[in-house]
Structures are given as structure tokens and as C-alpha cells.
């Protein structure tokens, strides 16, 4: 087995790990797809409030879809087939990775965020939804394209093992994937419309009250009761976590809104649909509302809130975000339906 192997790989920094990995991997296999495009076609935008899953002993709020889903959906719609593998045994997981690298295939890995040594300490949390591409190795050091970082990085074998086999909620179990087959024949506009349709379905028409637009409203109602129910200190922690989730994890909830707006803009260009540009602008406005919410929340965390009922104030801001997203996704749904009629 070769101990040194470097596959020429075009590393582009993205603002979110999974869509970044998706766009970089597909790009390597001859598809031209930007990060925002990957995010949109992969139906990345989402909302779910999951109080029963704890990160750092605090409830989880997701602003994007479940791990791996962007990759799966985007690659399927772009005419590629991904092969996924998970492992029980770390040694076999690393052997398989080495084998793929020797074949000249860059490999995506799902890892935890705590054990990667090139992460600044401040970003290390036990959060198992990080994605990166391994594109070579030099002895015991692996060459990694981590889309969150401006440059490719290097990671020692033992640290990579630990990161791939991070434990806890949603453990990656050594998950790795590579593009097994890619055909360049696919209908890009169908991919885009399919992506939009799927997103609308999940944001507007979910049976679960904690998901989609309903989820945002649900969280708004819950949040209002936090101080009374959990006590001041715990309420503050939950709020801090909420904002941290929104603004930091991945690219943050508002960040995802902007990324999706960027996707809509790009999609509007490709489909020659000015309507998508309008909706993109509306979504940008919603993203700004999310930011406003974050600012107000952070003020409370810092103990600088002026109004006497800070939490109900926050709740109403959140309800506005919900209303905004409701509007955006309804217009999108309408748009897709109309395009479909024209095409039929």
C-alpha cells in the first residue's frame, strides 16, 4: 500500500460542511455545482425543534435537514450514485479509506466535531454532524479538505479515527461515502424544481408539530414559558444554546436562510424565472428577521434587555419569522405548481 498519495482535489471553502462537501465532491466528478446549489437541490433548509435530543445537556434546534440528507438528495438529483459505508471496527474503517484513496477516489467522511485537532478549541463541541473530504495521505497524516476552512488541512491518523468514531447522539460510526457512479446526463431544471418542491412539502405540510413552520411557532410558544418553567438560569442557558445553534452550528439558521436565498437567485438565473428572484429577496428579509431575533436573544443572555417581558418579546419576533417563512414557502409552492402546469 502506498504511504503517500495525493489526489488532485479542488478545495473550495463553503459556509456549511455538508453542502460544501457535496459541491466539492460532485465538482471533482465533473459536475459544476455551487455550494448554494447543492444546498438547494439537496433540500437543505429546514426547521425542527427537538427538545428530547440533548446537546451539551440542552435541547437541540435544527435549522437544516438531517445529516447526510443533502448529500443523498443532491447527488441523486444530479445523476450520481453515492456509496455509503459504516463500520464497527475502526481498523477496517481506516483500511477501507486507504484502499479508496489508493484507487484515486476522494472519500467523504462524517465525523464528530470534538476530536479534530485543527479545529480551534472554541469550536470543539460534542456534535457529530461534521463532514469532510479525505483526498490523500502522507504516512500517518491525512490530507483533508474541510469545507469550513479556507485551506486544506492535515489530520493525524489517530485523531481521524477518534473523530470518525465519535460517540454520543447520532454517532457517525465511521461513516464514509464516495461517488460510485456519475452520469452527466440529467435535467438540471428538474433537479432544481424537485428540490424546491421537497422543501415546501417539509416546511409546510408536516404531520409533526415540531417541524417546519409549525415547529417555529411551537418553539415560540415554548420559549415564552421558559423562565417560568425552567427558572431564570436554565432559561438563559437554553436561549444561549438556541442562538448558538442558530448562528454557529453549520452556518447557523439565519445563515441557512441566506444560503437558500442565494440558491433561489442562482436557480432564477438558470430557469430564467424572475419570480424566484423576488422570492429570494423575501427570504433575505426573513433571514434578517432571524438575525434580529438573535440580537434580541443575545441581549438577554448578556443581561442587557430593557423590556420587562423579554421572553414574550422574543416569542413574538420568532412568530414573525414563522409568518415570513410561511409566506416564502407558500409562494415557492405556488411557483413550482405553475411551472409544472406550463411544462405539462
Amino acid at each position: 500500500m502506498a504511504t503517500t498519495k495525493e489526489i488532485p482535489f479542488d478545495h473550495r471553502q463553503g459556509s456549511h460542511c455538508e453542502s460544501g462537501v457535496t459541491s466539492n465532491l460532485l465538482q471533482h466528478h465533473g459536475q459544476s455545482i455551487s455550494e448554494a446549489m447543492a444546498f438547494g437541490i439537496g433540500e437543505g433548509i429546514f426547521f425542527a425543534y427537538l427538545p428530547f435530543i440533548k446537546v451539551n445537556a440542552l435541547p437541540l434546534t435544527a435549522y437544516r435537514c438531517e445529516a447526510g440528507a443533502i448529500l443523498k438528495r443532491a447527488s441523486r438529483r444530479m445523476g450520481c450514485r453515492l456509496k455509503w459505508q459504516t463500520f464497527r471496527d475502526p481498523a477496517r474503517a481506516m483500511d477501507e479509506l486507504d484502499r479508496k484513496l489508493d484507487e484515486g477516489t476522494p472519500v467523504g467522511c462524517r465525523t464528530g466535531g470534538y476530536w479534530l485537532p485543527y479545529f480551534p478549541e472554541a469550536y470543539r463541541i460534542h456534535f457529530n454532524l461534521h463532514n469532510l473530504v479525505v483526498y490523500g495521505r502522507r504516512g500517518d497524516d491525512y490530507l483533508i479538505s474541510d469545507p469550513v476552512f479556507p485551506e486544506p488541512v492535515v489530520c493525524a491518523r489517530k485523531d481521524l479515527i477518534k473523530a470518525r468514531f465519535a460517540k454520543g447522539a447520532l454517532a457517525p460510526r465511521g461513516a464514509m461515502y464516495h461517488v460510485a457512479a456519475s452520469s452527466l446526463r440529467f435535467d438540471q431544471s428538474a433537479a432544481i424544481l424537485g428540490g424546491i418542491r421537497g422543501v415546501c412539502r417539509r416546511m409546510l405540510h408536516t404531520p409533526a408539530p415540531i417541524v417546519g413552520v409549525r415547529g417555529i411557532r411551537f418553539l415560540a410558544r415554548r420559549l415564552e414559558k421558559w423562565p417560568g418553567k425552567l427558572g431564570e438560569r436554565r432559561a438563559l442557558q437554553c436561549l444561549g444554546q438556541l442562538i448558538r445553534m442558530q448562528e454557529e452550528i453549520g452556518t447557523g439558521g439565519a445563515g441557512f436562510r441566506f444560503m437558500y436565498a442565494a440558491f433561489l437567485q442562482e436557480a432564477g438565473d438558470r430557469l430564467h424565472a424572475p419570480r424566484l428572484h423576488e422570492i429570494s429577496n423575501e427570504l433575505t428579509a426573513v433571514g434578517d428577521q432571524w438575525r434580529e431575533f438573535a440580537v434580541a436573544g443575545a441581549r438577554i443572555c448578556k443581561g442587557r434587555s430593557a423590556p420587562e417581558a423579554p421572553y414574550s418579546n422574543l416569542a413574538s419576533l420568532l412568530a414573525e419569522c414563522a409568518a415570513g417563512e410561511d409566506r416564502v414557502f407558500r409562494s415557492l409552492k405556488d411557483f413550482v405548481r405553475r411551472v409544472a402546469q406550463v411544462r405539462l
Binding site: 438563559l236 448562528e247 454557529e248 447557523g252 440580537v295 443575545a298 443572555c301 448578556k302
Partner: peptide
């Protein structure tokens, strides 16, 4: 930007 930094430093 600030809200993120505040939330992060609170967590830390």
C-alpha cells in the same frame, strides 16, 4: 458578529 460571540462565550 456579536450575538454569535455572546452566545459562544456564554457557552464557554
Amino acid at each position: 458578529w456579536e450575538p454569535k460571540n455572546i452566545a459562544n462565550s456564554q457557552a464557554w
